[in-house]
Design a protein around this nucleic acid. Structure first.
Length: 556
RNA sequence: CGGGGCGUAGCGCAGCCUGGCAGCGCGCCUGGUUUGGGACCAGGAGGUCCCGGGUUCAAAUCCCGGCGCCCCGACCA
């Protein structure tokens, strides 16, 4: 590609509203452009990167025997009604109506469509197993898109679906995907971890996420530096350090705390760290209201609560008032007749602070034994300093970008949507399914977050938009350009009438990892090859260029 | 959905409070000088000031309504 003819535009200044490094760099480098909230155009440069990522995905999916297909995005409501997700997806689903008034959705994921195909083509155990995948645009009306390309409303996703006759078969399909995913992310040059995850709306049994650790990420993980354990905080067991924490309050005492309600307010008013407060939250359940107690600096994990209590939901302020006769800020566990569930961490506190159960008062100096009858459970998100469930070392809390997710779905969709097959014994059985996603756009973002600096990008060679960038300072590079193109490389040739500084700055921003500078040594028949990953500059006679370039490109 | 901020040239912004010719830097075009890390000089093009309504002799500026975008939170494969 001749750069002077290309649609590559770089910008000296980032858009004012870009918060993440990847957003700034991708816009400045002319990779992407926002159209509306959470919707982006991939400009030619960005699309080249996407195509290379998708090609790697295709190769590795094909390698595990998966077959590529392409399903529609426009889907009628009836399919979603069958699975029950017309309701449960709620506002996250983009919905529209045709001229006859029928309801449609732009597919946010494709389990229902796969099931519809499967129930028509899968009849016998002989038809199984199958793995089908596609690269398709998904639509999700996210309540809040953010971080540039990190969370968007329209995005390409590689989604695959496994169909098996047996649970062992599902395990195999799942294992194949895990392997394929590891190869894909490795080939894309990413550093990643995989973690146990929550399966959320998808429904299902086991699931793992593939994560790139990055401050820009929205997910939170706990990591164990000594044994390598990693998990999403959503599912990680919260095991507190077994060390008693003594507050300054030695005596049980009621104190006047006028209009002091929130954890921050109470903590500041009493001059005590939030960890010495205990939050008392009223949850409504199918078995009646329950008082849930966690440390002031901890967060209740409602998914964990739901494993213990039937359908818990936080009580409204009005419900609390009519139930306990006290306002939300002053609810406390003493002298309350509700059943109590407390997080384990509360057990290690001495002299903590709780609401007094009456307006404008708290009680300080409370000990666990004062709480009376309490059920001790793990009901909160894990956090920094909790213990590793494998080896007991302290855990570290980090942010991460989710780039892939694999699920064992089981029979959730096959049963609701009627995907059955006849087994060897003549019995009709539901197909056992798995579903597996990868966000190519997030791979791109992750690479930028990992390897970009404030003014430069450095793409892994496998997903760079070009194999090599010729920075031609003398305007005589056509010979080299032709040479490399004939050798089959994707070459960007900067033959613009620009000063050297401009060309270098642009090249840094574009971030092609191998760069050939045609400059002052050209009169001696030499060029400079820069390998940005190796941080090396080699001055080479042009005759040796192809040989050395080939070797450099073969390195990761 | 709650809280906050912003919409003025392709990008970054000033002007708004206190109404009176729509500006600055970068980018773009032309000519010249320059030429290995975002050059310099001269000239030039480019605007529904987010939209609609109102107040006024006069609205980017004041008032009312709407739309859009961003951030924090809630939410989320």
């Amino acid at each position: 590609m001749r750069q002077s003819k290309s649609l590559i535009r770089t910008y000296r200044e980032p858009p004012a509203d870009a918060e993440t490094k990847s957003h700034r760099l991708l816009v400045r480098g002319g990779y992407v452009r926002q159209l509306t909230s959470g919707v982006y155009t991939f400009l030619p440069l960005g699309w080249r990167v996407m195509k290379r990522i998708m090609e790697i995905i295709r190769q590795e999916m094909d390698a595990i025997g998966a077959q590529e297909l392409f399903m529609p995005s426009l889907t009628s409501s009836s399919l979603w009604e069958e699975s029950g997700r017309w309701e449960s997806f709620g506002d996250d689903m983009f919905r529209l109506r045709d001229r006859k008034g029928r309801d449609y959705a732009l597919a946010p994921t494709h389990e229902e469509i796969i099931s519809e195909i499967a129930r028509n083509v899968i009849h016998s155990y002989k038809d199984l197993p199958q793995i089908w995948y596609q690269l398709q645009t998904k639509f999700r009306d996210e309540p809040r898109p953010r971080g540039g390309l990190l969370r968007v409303r329209e995005f390409i996703m590689k989604d695959s679906y496994s169909l098996d006759a047996t649970w062992e078969g599902l395990d195999e399909s799942y294992a194949k995907h895990r392997k394929a995913y590891e190869r894909i992310f490795t080939r894309c040059g990413l550093k990643f971890v995989h973690v146990k995850a929550s399966s959320g709306l998808m429904g299902g049994k086991e699931s793992e996420e593939f994560m790139v650790i990055s401050d820009a990420g929205e997910d939170r993980l706990v990591l164990c530096d000594s044994c390598g354990y990693a998990a999403n905080v959503e599912v990680a067991p919260a095991i507190p350090e077994e060390r008693v924490e003594e507050s300054p309050f030695k005596e049980l005492k009621k104190v006047h705390t006028p209009n002091v309600r929130s954890i921050e307010e109470v903590s500041e008013f009493l001059g005590v760290e939030p960890k010495f407060l205990v939050k008392s939250l009223v949850y409504m359940t199918d078995e009646g209201p329950v008082l849930v107690l966690v440390r002031g600096d901890h967060e209740v994990n409602e998914e964990k609560l739901a494993r213990i209590l039937p359908n818990p939901r936080l009580a409204t302020a009005d419900e609390v008032l009519s139930l306990l006769g006290v306002e939300v800020g002053f609810v406390g566990p003493l002298n309350v007749s509700l059943p109590k569930i407390a997080d384990h961490a509360v057990r290690y506190l001495r002299g903590f602070v709780v609401g007094a159960g009456e307006e404008d008062h708290h009680i300080v100096g409370v000990n666990p034994e004062d709480l009376g009858d309490v059920r001790w459970e793990d009901i909160r998100y894990a956090t920094e300093g909790d213990r590793c469930p494998v080896c007991g070392s302290p855990l570290r809390l980090v942010n991460a970008i989710e780039i892939g997710h694999i699920f064992k779905l089981g029979t959730r969709y096959s049963e609701s949507m009627g995907v059955f097959f006849s087994d060897r014994d003549g019995q009709r059985k539901p197909v056992i399914m798995g579903s597996y996603g990868i966000g190519p756009g997030r791979i791109m973002v992750s690479a930028v977050e990992l390897y970009g600096t404030e003014n430069s990008m450095l793409w892994p060679k496998s997903i760079a938009p070009f194999d090599v960038h010729i920075v031609d300072l003398v305007g005589e590079g056509e010979e080299i350009y032709d040479l490399l193109r004939r050798a089959g490389y994707d070459v960007l040739w900067d033959e613009r009438e620009e000063r050297a500084g401009v060309k270098f700055k642009d090249a840094d921003l574009i971030g092609v990892p191998l760069r050939i500078v045609i400059g002052r040594a050209w009169k001696d028949g030499k060029v400079e090859l820069q390998d940005l990953w190796a941080q090396e500059r080699l001055e080479l006679p042009k005759e040796r260029l192809l040989e050395v370039l080939k070797e450099r490109l073969s390195r990761p």
